[in-house]
Amino acid sequence: MNSRTRTAWLFLTPMIVLMLIVAVWPLARSIWFSFTDTNINDIAASQWVGWENYFGEYGLFFNPNDEEGFWAGDWGVSIRNTFSFAVVSVVLETLTGLGLALLLNQEFKGRALVRTAVLVPWAIPTIVSAKMWGWMLNDQFGVINNLLVSAGLITHKIAWTAEPSYALWTVVLVDVWKTTPFMALLILAALQTVPKDCYEAARVDGVHPLRVFWRITLPLIRQPLMVAIIFRLLDSLRVFDLIYVLTANGSTTISMSGFVRREMVEYGNMGFGSAASTSLFLIIMLTAIIFLRLARVKLAEDAK
């Protein structure tokens, strides 16, 4: 046993060291910077300011000079935008991916070709797909505006990624187009594990297909479905590239990651940006814990 333990540690040590270098150390450094007033132009002159970046006069979560309230500030707007984007996109991707997976799970001619074609949007790099959609949604020469005007659905061309009332939801729809295949792939893998005997017995008993879905399919794929939703939710809370390319990180669409990038890169406020980065990490971690707890309680109740 001692020999096996030593061997295990021998194989684990390189991975642990690598994780400390690429994950733990940068996170610890970011947390340290969040308690300082570090500026990228003069890092050596940074001073310890404690909780000022979080709850100080111009902190993230409390600013007594802001008469409009927390949610009207840039950080509050970024939190609201991020969760609005995450919730709506994940719900749409889950429902669309579930329907697509159910379709791809059926036996039909050319199914392998259709499965491959469905994965194309997901395989396209995010920057490439964002640029492509940005061109198609352009209010001057975009093909989508031309088609909608020609069909009489709109009377004038719309700046889909620039007008505040459309910008965020346009980004959501682009994300749904790109990421739905990912959800469909995970759900399809879960559907492949459902025993065929269950469907055969239901068919013999004359059970309606909709009842088969609610009573057989959904309960048997519920756990893999929850895992897929959690993965997608955590990923959507970190959204940056799609919003940045389509809307240039505008004030009406800025995400939490976009806020961090703006403060640290454009403004050079390493301390304040690190506080936002640490807060983003804690918000995502707290969201994951709450979601996992709720899912575990739900699954336990269903098991009873």
Rank of each mutant, 00 (worst) to 15 (best):
E52K: 13
N53E: 06
N53D: 08
G56M: 07
E57A: 11
Y58V: 07
G59D: 07
G59E: 09
L60S: 12
L60M: 09
F61I: 09
F62P: 00
F62E: 05
N63A: 06
D66P: 00
E67S: 09
G69P: 02
G69K: 06
G69N: 07
F70N: 07
A72R: 11
G73H: 02
G73F: 01
G76P: 05
V77S: 10
S78V: 10
I79L: 13
R80I: 06
R80E: 10
T82H: 05
T82P: 00
F83M: 11
F85I: 09
F85A: 10
V87E: 02
V87N: 02
V88H: 00
V88A: 06
S89L: 01
S89Y: 01
V90M: 02
L92M: 12
E93F: 03
E93C: 11
G97S: 08
G97W: 03
G99S: 03
G99W: 02
L100N: 04
A101S: 09
A101H: 03
A101V: 04
A101W: 03
L102C: 03
L103W: 06
L104W: 00
F108C: 03
A112R: 11
A112T: 14
A112W: 03
R115V: 08
R115I: 05
R115T: 10
V118K: 04
V120G: 07
I124S: 08
P125Q: 13
T126I: 14
V128L: 14
V128T: 14
S129C: 06
S129K: 04
A130T: 14
K131M: 13
W133K: 01
W133V: 00
W135D: 10
M136V: 04
M136P: 06
M136A: 13
N138C: 05
D139A: 13
F141H: 13
F141P: 02
I144L: 00
N145A: 13
N146H: 15
L148S: 03
V149N: 06
S150T: 15
S150G: 09
G152D: 09
G152A: 11
G152M: 09
L153N: 05
L153M: 15
I154Y: 03
T155E: 15
T155G: 15
H156N: 14
K157R: 15
K157W: 07
W160Q: 06
A162Y: 12
P164R: 11
Y166L: 09
Y166G: 01
